[in-house]
C-alpha cells in the first residue's frame, strides 16, 4: 500500500487489535450536575484497565433532565468487563459504594436489552434491612432504599451486551507539549460520540504496555518500542529521532462501527494541525493479530 499522510502526518500501515468484552450502561442522576459529576467520578474511578482494575469505565455522555427517568441532570456511564460474572460483581459493588453513598443520587439501567441481566438494586436492597420498597412500573422494577437524606432509588437490574475493548491509536509528536495538545484535540472529538468511552485519565494513556516482562511476576511491562528515552538502547524501537513523546488513546465501544467512528474522529482531530503542529505520525498497538479478533487498520479507518 502506498504511503498515507494527512496534513503531512504519516499514517502507519498497521492496525489496532481489540478484544471482545462485556459491557453495561448505567444512568446516574442527582440534584445538580455537580453532584452527578461527584457520583460518576467515584463510580468510574480506578477503572482504566481490566488488567489492574477489573473493569474499564467512563462517562459516555452527560444527560439533560429531559433525558433521564426522574427528570434530573444525569450521565450515562459505560462499564466494560471481561465476562458477565466479573461485571455482575464489580457493578453492584461500585454502585453500592459510589452511587448509593453519593447525596441525592439515583441509579437506572441505561441498557434495557442484552444477552443477560445483572443485579443493581436487586443486590443492594438488603442494605435497607427490611425497609426496602419495590415499585414495578411497566416492565421495569425499581427499589426504594431508605437512606439518611431520603431514599436511594435504584433500578432492579441492568442488561449486559457484547462490546469491544482496546481500540487504540498512538500519536507520535515532536514534543510532549505538542503531543498532549494533539491528544486533547482527539479526546474532544471522540467524547461526544455515542457508544464509546475513553477509560484512561483525561482519555489519554502515557504508559502503553507490551505483553510480558523480564520479571516473571509481571504479565505486562512498559512498551519499550515506543519509549523515546530508550530509543538509543532499544533495538526494536519504532521511533524516529525526531519523536520526543508518544501518547495513546484507548477506546472501548459497543461494536466495531462505534470504535471505527471514534478512531476516525480522533485521528482526524489529532492530525488537523498537521506536521506544523508537531504531530509526526499516527500508529496503533497490536499483538501481531494473534490475540484479538477485531483489527482496525488505520489506513482503512482513515480512507
Amino acid at each position: 500500500m502506498t504511503e498515507m499522510r494527512i496534513n503531512g502526518v504519516r499514517i502507519e500501515d498497521t492496525f489496532a487489535e481489540a478484544f471482545p468484552m462485556t459491557y453495561t450502561r448505567l444512568v446516574i442522576t442527582a440534584d445538580t450536575p455537580a453532584w452527578v459529576d461527584a457520583a460518576t467520578s467515584s463510580l468510574t474511578g480506578f477503572a482504566t484497565s481490566v488488567i489492574g482494575c477489573g473493569c474499564e469505565a467512563a462517562v459516555e455522555r452527560l444527560l439533560t433532565a429531559e433525558e433521564t427517568p426522574d427528570s434530573r441532570p444525569g450521565a450515562a456511564v459505560m462499564i466494560f468487563g471481561m465476562s458477565t460474572g466479573d461485571l455482575a460483581k464489580l457493578v453492584v459493588n461500585r454502585v453500592g459504594q459510589c452511587i448509593m453513598t453519593s447525596p441525592g443520587s439515583a441509579c437506572y439501567a441505561g441498557l434495557l436489552e442484552g444477552t443477560k441481566r445483572i443485579p443493581l438494586g436487586g443486590g443492594l436492597r438488603y442494605f435497607a434491612d427490611g425497609h426496602q420498597i419495590s415499585k414495578k412500573f411497566g416492565d421495569r422494577r425499581f427499589w426504594r432504599l431508605p437512606v439518611m437524606d431520603g431514599e436511594f432509588v435504584c433500578e432492579d437490574s441492568v442488561a449486559v451486551a457484547k462490546g469491544i475493548g482496546g481500540g487504540n491509536f498512538l500519536i507520535l509528536a515532536a514534543s510532549h507539549r505538542l503531543c498532549l495538545a494533539a491528544a486533547e484535540a482527539a479526546v474532544a472529538a471522540i467524547r461526544p460520540l455515542p457508544g464509546i468511552i475513553l477509560p484512561f485519565p483525561g482519555g489519554v494513556v502515557r504508559s502503553g504496555s507490551k505483553v510480558g516482562s523480564k520479571y516473571k511476576a509481571l504479565i505486562a511491562s512498559t512498551n519499550t518500542r515506543f519509549c523515546p528515552t530508550l530509543r538509543a538502547v532499544e533495538p526494536e524501537t519504532l521511533l524516529t529521532p525526531d519523536v520526543e513523546a508518544v501518547l495513546e488513546l484507548v477506546l472501548d465501544g459497543t461494536d466495531e462501527a462505534a470504535i471505527r467512528t471514534g478512531m476516525r474522529a480522533g485521528i482526524a482531530a489529532a492530525t488537523a494541525g498537521g506536521t506544523a503542529a508537531g504531530v509526526l505520525a499516527i500508529t496503533a498497538g497490536n499483538y501481531g493479530g494473534k490475540l484479538g479478533p477485531h483489527h482496525f487498520h488505520l489506513r482503512e479507518v482513515m480512507a
Binding site: 427517568p69 426522574d70 427528570s71 439515583a106 415499585k135 412500573f137 425499581f142 431520603g150 431514599e151 432509588v153
Partner: peptide, 13 residues
C-alpha cells in the same frame, strides 16, 4: 413530608 423521587418514575410510566 418530603419530595419523592420515585413519583417522577410513576409519572413517566
Amino acid at each position: 413530608t418530603r419530595d419523592w423521587l420515585f413519583l417522577h418514575l410513576l409519572r413517566r410510566a
